Computed example of a mutant assay.
Amino acid sequence: MGKRVLICGISGQDGTYLAKLLLDRNYEVWGTSRDAEMTTFSNLRRLGIYDSVRLTSLNLRDTGSIIGLLRRVRPDEIFYLAGQSSVGLSFEQPVETIESIALGTLSLLEAIRLSDRDVRFYNAGSTECFGDTGGGVANEGTQFHPRSPYAVAKASAYWTVANYREAYGMFACTGILSNHDSPLRPRRFVTSKIIHAVASLALRRDVHIALGNLEIERDWGWSPDYVEAIAMMLEQPEAEDYIIATGQSHTLTQFVETAFELIGKDWNAHVTIDKHLMRPTDILWNKVDPSKAADRLGWKAKNGMKEVISMMLEAEMRSLREKQIKQ
């Protein structure tokens, strides 16, 4: 057996793909959930790895229980991928967002420090922290300008990790990830919402979809690509923070157009704009430079926006067909 790792947030998109990647590398994988007895872990089951991981409950508000878990599991690496993950939802649940992301990160780092264990720690950051990059391109040295409770929480977690790394010499780093998707994305995310609508239309269902601001520009990547970079970050001789992205940004209009073009339909006939779906503050342009990851890690995204859309659409159409057969 290789290294022993603990993935906090293993039931989510990135946690599931990371677990599969590390299992394939012969790691012993542990995963946590707030209540492991009640969580279905449907994503783990979907990838066929549910029986290969060891699952346990964890309350991130209880430092003592975290220390107890560290002593029991004795992980070599910890990946913190838990916490509220939706920018839009963070405006409705700002307290939960701040607590689950910022305080969750702090609790884990403090528990590692107090347990005096040599553990490598990864924190899931976000390019949302940069805010609106306008005509520029952000890199690891660009100042943060968060414009949502989610981005504020991620920025706080980023600086907490940097502080523990500098103050206590801990191997702790943050991956500043751009938007990334897969068939495991929940429907509340706009990309998954669009893909589901297009797949339904392809199967001859009458579909109309309401969207917010179509002019926002993001860098969309593929989650299985990104977890490879996440794993690489903890394999380096020194802990450093990296932007993980494709380096190519597109508007939401282009995302929608591409999805509808794949089924030969005109998106204008099926999409309406709902002002209620627009956020109180939003980022119009978000462009980032992932060249440090290419230079230091040897990592580059294998899939861009069009490939991501195509793979998500294929998976969603397959899922809808299977549901039709069962009915």
Score class of each variant (00 low, 15 high):
A259V: 09
A301L: 01
A202G: 15
D181E: 11
A269M: 13
A245P: 06
R188Y: 15
R185Y: 06
V207F: 11
E240K: 13
K275Q: 15
S310A: 08
P183F: 07
R218Y: 02
L201I: 06
H196N: 14
T246L: 01
P186A: 10
M278F: 08
W222N: 04
S291Q: 13
Y226K: 10
D219G: 01
I194G: 10
D289P: 02
D225R: 05
G264M: 02
L277R: 14
D289A: 00
L211T: 13
I216F: 00
K292G: 01
F189H: 14
T191Q: 09
D219A: 02
P290W: 07
G298C: 05
M311Q: 12
E307W: 03
L277V: 08
V190C: 05
E257C: 09
F255R: 03
P183N: 07
L277Q: 12
P290Y: 05
E261M: 11
V288R: 01
Y226V: 12
L201Y: 11
E238M: 15
K265G: 00
A294Y: 12
H276V: 15
E228D: 04
D225C: 06
P237W: 13
L184I: 11
R218T: 01
Q248I: 09
H208Y: 05
L284G: 01
K265E: 12
T251F: 08
I243F: 01
V190T: 10
V256L: 09
A259I: 09
G298F: 06
D206N: 11
D266M: 03
A197T: 06
D282F: 06
R188G: 05
L214I: 15
I263S: 01
